[in-house]
Write a protein that binds this DNA or RNA. Structure first.
Lengths: 246, 246
DNA sequence: AAGTGGTCTAGACCACACA
DNA sequence: GTGTGGTCTAGACCACTTT
């Protein structure tokens, strides 16, 4: 390949066009996760640019988290790895500082429903707004820390209802990838605080009216479309978050 | 200057040593905020390295937020600018989408106290653990959104008590800089959720037991030492936070 | 016009991984 | 040993800011 093969944009600098070009080949799964992309020298020859320019494009993709460099070995497409990301918000560790373990998952209900309008818009459902709805609990040492209320597009995810709980396991993203061919590469989380209604109080083992932390999550494909949308309701006493601002 | 003038480290690559060297000169206020550092060519000559290598060091400091480049003009030490950072957590906007304005600030009490042990450790106080304690409210359109409980080291900040409320204004960091010579360049925030006690409920205009969001903040100098430590108690219904994870 | 950062090149040499 | 990425150099030319 000696020239840009995709609709590459305006008068961007060369390295930026190269960067977008490489990103497009990753997004198109021409280079799947774990794959070693061609060596710098090879890419430089193919695109008829200097190695330095290709390096710069690659460096930016590394900074964005798309690629990973291993000296002496090659440059690899990063395998995204955040299913633990609810751990980001809720503390699933015991006082006995054990390693971080995936909490137990229990599926309460799976059914085909008519989705609320907001969900239908997020999942880009047709006018019937049909979706697969999943309710599940996340437990830790016998205590329910989080309950989740999740929607997947129908009919694409119809088979999700039939899968056995063992086949699904505690993490959904690997199932999306293995069974449905959807790779989740990013999530957006929005945090807010509410109070437990009767149902949530019972599930979480707290009083009605006690504080509950809501995590509204969208799981996204590389192209930004939505794979699932969910709200997680977590015990506020398990919530903790740290950041440094500069 | 032709060689490293500060305790520069091990066998790091040249560009990394240069980067640390430049960062040290910024931290030492040799190059204060807003200052234009020497041109690339000049630095390259002074340190006897190539321009490309200096560029790489500078690029990293730009990525870290320490420097800012302006094409054709120069490279400047960034002027940190987050006093609005409680806005990160609490929504101070009205439904009428006006511009983002600094909320009103009302000082309730300023006094010299014996600090709790945790605070004393954070502020590195002497054995008497004396500190200046400040209580204030942040209001928006007449409603109290956040109350703050803040500690500053004594005797360094003794004069903070005598300043008039007008002199202080709604933002503390400019006062720290102007009056006490302390530049806050970073903060760490830790978020958790609690419930309103009688005092907080009254101040925030909510029921006893209603959810309250705690923001535990450390305000840091460039060298990582603590200028102030505070806990903000905010109305949970005003709390909202968004992130994207990749 | 002079000075600054932004882009791009061409190539040397080093450190590390892998077969 | 061969191939890969990591460091470093030297210099050309461009785009923008300042005076």
């Amino acid at each position: 390949m000696t020239t840009m093969s995709r609709p590459v944009d305006e008068r961007l600098p060369l390295y930026a066009r190269l960067r977008d070009e490489l990103a497009a080949r990753i997004a198109a799964s021409e280079w799947p996760p774990g794959f070693a992309i061609p060596a710098e020298q090879e890419l430089a020859t193919a695109y008829r640019v200097s190695v330095s320019t290709i390096r710069r494009a690659i460096e930016q993709l590394v900074a964005e988290g798309l690629l990973e460099r291993k000296q002496g070995s090659g440059t690899y497409v990063r395998r995204p790895s955040f299913d633990g990301s609810l751990f980001r918000w809720f503390n699933f560790e015991d006082s006995a500082g054990g390693g971080r373990i995936v909490p137990e998952s229990r599926l309460l209900r799976r059914s085909v429903v008519t989705a609320p309008e907001k969900v239908a818009a997020q999942l880009q459902l047709g006018p019937e707004r049909k979706a697969v709805r999943v309710l599940r609990l996340r437990l830790w040492q016998g205590q329910t820390i989080v309950t989740e209320d999740l929607y997947l597009p129908y009919p694409r995810y119809e088979r999700f209802i039939e899968l056995s709980e063992q086949d699904i396991g505690p993490l959904f993203y690997p199932v999306y990838e293995r069974v449905f061919g959807d790779l989740v590469t990013a999530v957006t989380d929005e945090i807010s605080v509410g109070r437990a209604d009767r149902i949530r109080a019972k599930l979480l083992g707290i009083e009605v009216g006690a504080p509950v932390v809501h995590v509204d999550r969208l799981s996204l494909r590389r192209d930004g479309t939505v794979v699932d949308t969910r709200r997680a309701y977590g015990r506020a006493d398990r919530f903790r978050y740290r950041v440094t601002l500069k």
